[in-house]
Design a binder for these strands. Structure first.
Lengths: 208, 208
DNA sequence: CAGCTTAGCTGCACTCAGTGCCATACTGCA
DNA sequence: TGCAGTATGGCACTGAGTGCAGCTAAGCTG
C-alpha cells in the first residue's frame, strides 16, 4: 500500500526511529520478565541505552508505549468507510471498518506478535493500561463516528452516529472483556478473533 | 427502600462518614476554584482538616473521590433486572436497568448537583478522571451482564450477554461523548437526560 | 570543507501521587 | 475502669512526570 516506515529520510529520522523501536523492544522484554509494575521507566531507558528523561520525548507516559500504532487503526477504519459501495447501509460499513481496525497490527516487524499478546495481558491486569486502552478506543470511536456521519448525511446526525458507533464498539469491547478471561484465548489472537466475529454476528443481527 | 446512610450505627461510623463528606466537599470546592490539576491531595486533606496520609484510607486515589456512589449504581441496575416481568425481552429489561443507573444520584444530600456537574466537566477535560469513569462503566457493564445472563439463561450465553450489554452501554457512552460537548447540556443534567433518552430510542429501535 | 544554526539528548532539581511503617490516641466493649 | 482493636497521621521513601539549561551532533549554506 503505502511506503513502509523504515526508510526514514534523514539520518536523524532514522536514528529516532531506531531508538523508538529499541525502547519498545526493551520494554516488552522487561515487562515479560519482571512484570509491568516491577519495571520502572528508568529501567526501560537504561536497557535501550538512553537517558531516563529522553523516554518522555518518545512516549508521553509509561502506558503509551503499549499502543504505538494507534494512528494506523484510525486510518484503517477511515479507509474502510471511504471504500463503501452505494448499496451499503451504515451498519454494513461499520462492521467492515471495525474488522479492519481489529486486523491492524502493522508497522513493527517481528515485535508485533509479542507486543499484541503482552498488550492483551496487561489490559486485563494493569488498571493504568486498561484505562489507556479504553481512552484510545473512545478516540477511535469518535473519529469513526465523524466519518460515518459524513458518509451518510441523510440518515445520521451527530448524536445518532456516535450512538450507533458506540453500540458496535461497545459490543466488541463487552465481548472482548469476557473472551479475554477465557484461558483458551490467551496468546492466540487468531482464535480470539474468530470467536469475537461469531459473537458480533449474533448480537448485531437485528440491524442487518 | 433501605434505611438511609446517614444514621451510622456507632460513633466511629458517624465520624468516619462525616470525614468522608468533608473530604468530598473540600475537594469539590477546591476543584471548582483552582481546577483539578491545581489542587493537590495535600490541599484537600488540609481543607478537610485531616492528615494527607489519611486521605488514602478513604479514597484509593485522587480520581476515585469523584465517584463516591459507584456501588449504588450497580445496585440500581440489579434491582431493575430482578423486577422484570415474564413478558420482558432482554433488551427491555436492559433498557430499564440503564435508565435507573443514569437516574441514580442518591446518598450525598445537597452536594449531588454540584458534584454531578463537576464530574461531567472533569470527565470531559481530565484524562485521569475520564479513564476512571470508563473503568467504572466497564465494571458496571460486567456486573449487569452477569445478572442479565442469569435472568435469561435460555437466550444468552456469557459472551452474548456481555456483547449485548456492551452494545447498549456503548450507545449511551457514545451519545454522551457528543452530548457533553454541547454547551446546552453543561450544568443541566435534566436536559441532557432528555436528549440521551431520545437518541437511545432511535438507535436501539431495531431491537424492540 | 568550514562555520553557523538548530534539533534532540540528558543530567539535575523539583512536584506530586501513592505506600509502608510505626507510635499514638481514641473508641467500643466487657 | 481497663483492655483490645482500630483509625490516625507523621516520616521516609519510590516512581512518574516536568522544566530548565548545557551540550552534542546533525543539517544546511556558501
Amino acid at each position: 500500500m503505502s511506503p513502509p516506515t523504515h526508510a526514514g529520510r534523514t539520518l536523524r529520522d532514522r536514528k529516532r526511529d531506531r531508538t523508538r523501536r529499541a525502547l519498545i523492544a526493551a520494554a516488552v522484554d522487561l515487562f515479560e520478565r519482571r512484570g509491568y509494575d516491577g519495571t520502572t521507566v528508568a529501567d526501560i531507558a537504561a536497557a535501550a541505552d538512553v537517558g531516563t528523561r529522553t523516554f518522555f520525548s518518545y512516549f508521553g507516559s509509561k502506558e503509551e508505549l503499549m499502543f504505538p500504532d494507534s494512528q494506523a487503526r484510525v486510518r484503517a477504519a477511515v479507509a474502510a468507510i471511504a471504500a463503501r459501495r452505494p448499496s451499503d447501509r451504515p451498519a454494513d460499513v461499520l462492521l467492515r471498518a471495525l474488522r479492519d481496525v481489529g486486523a491492524t497490527d502493522g508497522g513493527l516487524d517481528d515485535m508485533v506478535g509479542r507486543l499484541t499478546a503482552l498488550r492483551l495481558r496487561l489490559i486485563r491486569t494493569v488498571p493504568a493500561v486498561r484505562g489507556r486502552a479504553l481512552q484510545l478506543a473512545l478516540a477511535v470511536q469518535r473519529e469513526i463516528a465523524g466519518h460515518l456521519r459524513r458518509a451518510f448525511p441523510a440518515e445520521l446526525d451527530d448524536v445518532g452516529a456516535a450512538a450507533l458507533v458506540g453500540a458496535f464498539v461497545g459490543a466488541v469491547t463487552g465481548a472482548l472483556q469476557v473472551l479475554l478471561e477465557d484461558p483458551d484465548t490467551h496468546n492466540d489472537p487468531e482464535y480470539l478473533r474468530q470467536r469475537l466475529h461469531t459473537a458480533m454476528d449474533d448480537v448485531l443481527r437485528p440491524w442487518r
